[in-house]
């Protein structure tokens, strides 16, 4: 008799698909946050599988801070078109027009306006009662405690001390008008799982994840890509560095890593050798001790 056990990736896939379908069945208007990164790519693939042979029955929402890499935007438009999904792009244009940028505002305030506020506005404008996000619990300590269905009050805020217990695969979808649920179908995936799945499933990803010579500034030991009129401080010299992105965000807030890994096999191999965590090169997480937790309380994903 053949053995009937799922591999860990198949088990994670089954769990995520169950979550995605459950949300679609129980909420009036779900939306899927699409950040263009590798986790989003996996999440979108799972949504395709969940509703096959139908199209993905909810729109993808991209919060565009206008500080994203050009390659990300090109990839986004082609990818979304190729799978026939609906895409909504939302930008806090008011803040941008008022001159919001990370150089003058600092990363915390900039992130608050261009990501958190933009996200809350977009969710309110669309009347979405559930929003999928690609966050994983292994990314950051406060995320390790977040539910798969993360309840947010009328202001989009997370209260870590008052989370609903979540048992088995039975999720509580009950909310009042104005309240929302953030849903994290990849909660139990690790960075390694995501890369192994991308490789196994041949999922397209932004070329920024692959190593090549890129123009960089070295600041406080971090490799910062030269894009979007990045302001150089005195004595700083941009130079070409063989590098790639381990995670993707805004250009100013995403450090690159030195790497030769130019294809998926090399990336997976490199991953096993990493000594440092994935979000280490995400500047916003380290602004203050426990800063991700504070941002989440305010409504950040």
């Amino acid at each position: 008799m053949q053995q009937r056990t799922l591999s860990h990736l198949q088990a994670l896939e089954a769990e995520s698909i169950h979550i995605i379908r459950e949300v679609m069945a129980e909420f009036a208007k779900p939306v899927m946050l699409y950040s263009i990164g590798k986790d989003s790519s996996v999440m979108v693939r799972l949504a395709q599988k969940a509703f096959y042979p139908s199209r993905i029955p909810f729109p993808l929402l991209h919060i565009d801070t206008t500080y994203k890499f050009k390659e990300m935007i090109t990839f986004r438009d082609e990818f979304v078109k190729s799978i026939g999904a609906d895409l909504i792009v939302h930008t806090n244009t008011e803040a941008i027009e008022a001159g919001a940028n990370p150089f003058d505002l600092g990363t915390q305030r900039c992130c608050g306006l261009l990501k958190t506020k933009a996200l809350l506005d977009a969710l309110a404008a669309g009347g979405y009662d559930a929003a999928f996000g690609g966050a994983r619990r292994d990314e950051e300590k406060s995320r390790a405690k977040e539910r798969i269905y993360s309840f947010r009050d009328k202001f989009g805020q997370w209260d870590p001390k008052n989370q609903r217990p979540e048992l088995w695969n039975v999720y509580n979808c009950k909310i009042e008008k104005g309240e929302t649920i953030r849903v994290f179908p990849l909660s139990n995936w690790t960075e390694t799982d995501v890369w192994n799945y991308i490789q196994l499933e041949n999922i397209p990803i932004v070329p920024l994840y692959y190593a090549k010579e890129r123009e960089m500034v070295v600041r406080h030991g971090q490799l910062i890509p030269l894009e979007h009129g990045m302001r150089l401080t005195e004595g700083e010299q941009p130079r070409m560095v063989m590098s790639r992105m381990r995670s993707l965000g805004c250009t100013y807030c995403t450090g690159a890593i030195r790497s030769e890994a130019a294809n998926l096999t090399q990336i997976v191999t490199e991953l096993n050798e990493f000594k440092r965590s994935e979000r280490e090169n995400r500047i916003i997480d380290h602004d203050t001790e426990g800063s991700m937790e504070m941002k989440k309380r305010e409504g950040y994903f």
Binding site: A144, K145, P160, K161, Q163, S187, T190, E289, E293
Partner: peptide, 25 residues
Amino acid sequence: GLRAEREQGITIDVAYRYFQTPRRK
């Protein structure tokens, strides 16, 4: 994980952790 926990030295809630070996996740 959480600030309150670090301050009080207690674990408040369920936290999920991940590790793997060559055989299992």
